[in-house]
């Protein structure tokens, strides 16, 4: 029978197991070693080197990012303190200038008052001096008139 010829023949057949089996096994083992040195090792080295490189870069970037955030926070606090400092300086300066202004104003007022007072006193003294002189001249004049009148007579 044909079917018998397929499977059961001593010569050939689908299930004809012979020395092909161990030789094929040796061939596959040899192939494993060849592929290991030709393919798995070199490609693995490259891929793992790159993976390491990438992960190192990611870690580095994360470190840098955290550093940046720290610096940012640092700067923010510095900015805050600088701002309050500036405010303090500005208000201080304002107070100072206010005080100086008031002082100067007072000084000027006092000076003005003093000179006004001095002028008034001067005017008063001159007025009284003039009045004295005037009344003395009137006295002289009246005396002169009286004398003349007496002489003519």
């Amino acid at each position: 029978m044909l079917a018998f010829n397929f499977f059961g023949a001593t010569e050939g057949g689908l299930f004809d197991i012979n020395a092909t089996l161990p030789l094929m096994a040796i061939q596959v083992v040899a192939l494993t070693y060849i592929l290991n040195s030709l393919f798995f090792k070199p490609v693995g080295n490259v891929v793992e080197k790159r993976e390491k490189f990438v992960s190192n870069n990611i870690i580095e970037a994360k470190n840098k990012l955290s550093e940046v955030k720290k610096l940012e926070a640092d700067l923010l606090t510095q900015l805050q303190s600088a701002r309050t400092e500036a405010q303090r300086i500005v208000s201080e300066a304002e107070n100072e200038s206010d005080k100086l202004y008031k002082e100067a104003l007072e000084l000027a007022n006092n000076e003005a008052n003093a000179s006004k007072e001095k002028a008034r006193l001067e005017i008063e003294s001159q007025t009284s001096a003039a009045r004295d002189q005037l009344s003395k001249q009137a006295d002289d004049l009246s005396e002169l008139i009286v004398n003349r009148l007496i002489l003519e007579k």
Partner: peptide, 19 residues
């Protein structure tokens, strides 16, 4: 015989399986 897939031969697949 004729050429074909090496895995269509029982020797090859048994060799692989035993490995």
């Amino acid at each position: 015989g004729e050429l074909g897939a090496p895995t269509a031969d029982i020797n090859t697949t048994i060799a692989l399986a035993l490995l």
